[in-house]
Design a protein around this nucleic acid. Sequence first.
DNA 1: TAAACTATACCGTCCAGACGGTATAGTTGA
DNA 2: TCAACTATACCGTCTGGACGGTATAGTTTA
Lengths: 173, 173
Amino acid sequence: MARKSTDTKEKLLDAFETLLERHGTSGATLDAVAAEAGVSKGGLLYHFGSKAELVKGSLDRLRVLVSEDIKEMKAAEAGPHIFYLETSAEIGTPLDRSLVAASRLSHEYDEARETLREIRNAWLEVINDHLGDIHLAHTIQLIGDGLYLKESVGLSAEEAVEHVKNVLARLGL
Amino acid sequence: MARKSTDTKEKLLDAFETLLERHGTSGATLDAVAAEAGVSKGGLLYHFGSKAELVKGSLDRLRVLVSEDIKEMKAAEAGPHIFYLETSAEIGTPLDRSLVAASRLSHEYDEARETLREIRNAWLEVINDHLGDIHLAHTIQLIGDGLYLKESVGLSAEEAVEHVKNVLARLGL
DNA sequence: TAAACTATACCGTCCAGACGGTATAGTTGA
DNA sequence: TCAACTATACCGTCTGGACGGTATAGTTTA
């Protein structure tokens, strides 16, 4: 039936990220990704000629999602820093899933590490531009990282956000 | 030469953790661990009968290191929370190395995830007991997590600690 | 002598990747 | 308009290598 190429590519990337999240890099084999996406292995390799291309495809999509997120951040009513903390605690969004996948990959692929570094810097810049306080900006980013890490260890980050907001209030935020 | 069994075991665990940190779980094969430790594969399997036992050995050692760390935390002059933040930014210590290894393993081994959860809870308890402020305790732990994550992505966490201390000062800490 | 190894040879399984083939939608030119 | 051709989107099979684990025979040192 030859569905649109982009649809299948997205499905393959979704499958790749799902498997990375569930079982780590060792679980995200080409066979498993193809099966998860409901595509044959040959089909997968038609779209992504190698595992490296699959990794690259995932990171490319992450960069797009982040640039969209940064637009939202800048436009957020409560300010970019609050938006940042709240979205750090969100799980299951396309951005979150893509970010988790990249962090799994970062242990074995330098390109993933580099991408995560760039993303971190972009976020920090937005927060610092808004607050005009580099100490606070760094601290908020660390808290966001912490929320993300907590979630990735399988603990709820939602209640933690409330604790953070309580503390931020004391700082006049 | 038949050196002490415990020495070789430690060397094997060191090698395992080194490879986990450098190349992730996929790089820490039994062959590679044995080679890194300067031991034959047979020698490795003499001490750790399977890869699962190697994982368990690493987590057991981590738990010991953490219990020692908690003693130091409680006795720290500047308070457990400052000790916690400063040691979160330290890299290359046995505890740090063991912790990085466990976090690599946590993506593929439930036991590692569970161990990390327990450790997090233990640290939080100490900080909360000292500060008597659950909001602050959670926030400090998140910052510590952030420092750890930042370091594990290959960025220096040392300067970040200074930013955090600046902010903590505003909170009367 | 027994514990602590080394060295080597395997085995079954899984994985990345290559390859040949198929189906179909669109394009071109006589 | 229709046959010839091209591009896209797959499927199924195979191979070479790596990995976890087993087995076994010999070696070193307290």
